[in-house]
């Protein structure tokens, strides 16, 4: 009985409670918040965080980190625009090209990290410069000035973000659900997922047990880059403009989401469900604060940064031996 209670009250449950609490507080403050139309439309604003964090979780479980994903969003967006407008390609072919380019970027960084043993942080830091730079160079290929952005996409492309199932559920939410399912099956129900965990726990042991650890590590960076590309396509379609600096401020949000979702930054532990819930917590926070408490959107880095610090500090204090001793004494009394 006690065990079942313990397994019931885990981190995911806690996140769900926080999410419900957010709904209650924001809903009480501003009735508009709870209108299904408003609430469901809000997904548009933070879908990129949701999608990318799902797959950055993979990277962090292997013990790495990915701070380049945000710059790949902009690269994807501008490639679609330039290939479609100036390259004369079909918009879908352009989107495919963008995904391939993103996968190559991820593979390049992943290769250096996995096969040259360079720290993930430095390479993805360099990558964030490099791919943002590429995006700027690609935008110079276009006849349109960079700051204007490329717009006027065909309706068939715009519709992927405007489509609503049964007239209410936006396509972004469906995409998020599908990707969560895919990520869940991949990480928790497949052989590949087990090897991702094992690489994070002990890379040497994984290597000796016959796993091609370097390939696994590299693949996680490709996955996160492709997810960034998908987010880039969704954002481009939703905004109707392709810009090279799209998503450039996402890094803090993505890392906060993954850490909040219960993934250990040292690797070896984490869950897709946790990340998915955490991304909703952060997304609703970013949506609700401006709507209900009139917080300027420019200040939103403060609550997100605070959340990140509070979570990591709380977890560090909770897991320190001193706290355990303290609670034991408490229990005895």
């Amino acid at each position: 009985m006690k065990k079942s209670i313990k397994s019931f009250f885990n981190w995911d449950m806690f996140l769900l409670c926080v999410l419900i609490l957010e709904f209650v507080i924001f809903g009480m403050k501003n009735q508009k918040f709870l209108m299904p139309r408003v609430l469901l439309a809000s997904v548009n604003d933070f879908i990129a965080i949701c999608i990318i964090s799902l797959f950055v979780t993979f990277v962090m479980i292997t013990g790495g980190i990915d701070i380049q994903a945000a710059s790949i969003v902009g690269l994807t967006s501008i490639i679609i625009g330039v290939a479609w407008q100036d390259g004369g390609m079909n918009v879908w072919a352009a989107a495919l090209l963008a995904v391939v380019a993103a996968a190559l970027c991820g593979a390049l960084s992943g290769f250096f990290i996995a096969y040259c043993n360079v720290q993930a942080m430095v390479i993805t830091l360099g990558g964030s410069f490099l791919y943002a730079g590429f995006a700027l160079l690609v935008s110079n290929l276009s006849a349109t000035e960079a700051y204007k952005g490329i717009s006027g996409f065909p309706d068939s492309f715009k519709v992927i973000s405007k489509f609503k199932l049964f007239g209410v559920i936006p396509s972004q939410l469906i995409l998020f659900a599908v990707l969560t399912l895919i990520a869940y099956l991949l990480l928790h129900k497949s052989k590949y997922g087990r090897s991702v965990f094992l690489v994070g726990i002990n890379q040497k042991a994984a290597e000796y047990s016959g796993i091609n650890t370097r390939l696994v590590i590299m693949s996680t960076y490709i996955l996160s880059a492709v997810s960034a590309a998908i987010a880039g396509i969704m954002l481009t379609s939703y905004l109707g403009t392709s810009k090279s600096d799209l998503g450039s401020n996402l890094t803090l949000n993505i890392i906060t989401t993954v850490v909040l979702g219960g993934t250990l930054s040292t690797g070896g532990k984490g869950s897709v469900i946790g990340t998915a819930l955490a991304s909703l917590v952060i997304g609703i926070l970013r949506f609700g604060l401006p709507l209900c408490f009139k917080v300027n959107t420019q200040y939103l880095d403060v609550p997100v940064g605070l959340l990140l610090i509070v979570v990591v500090v709380g977890r560090a204090i909770a897991s320190s031996p001193k706290t355990a001793v303290f609670f034991k004494r408490f229990q005895k009394n």
Binding site: L252, T256, G305, I309
Partner: peptide
């Protein structure tokens, strides 16, 4: 990296 990223956002 994680801790100072949080500080960065707050500042």
């Amino acid at each position: 990296l994680i801790f100072t990223l949080g500080t960065n956002g707050i500042l």
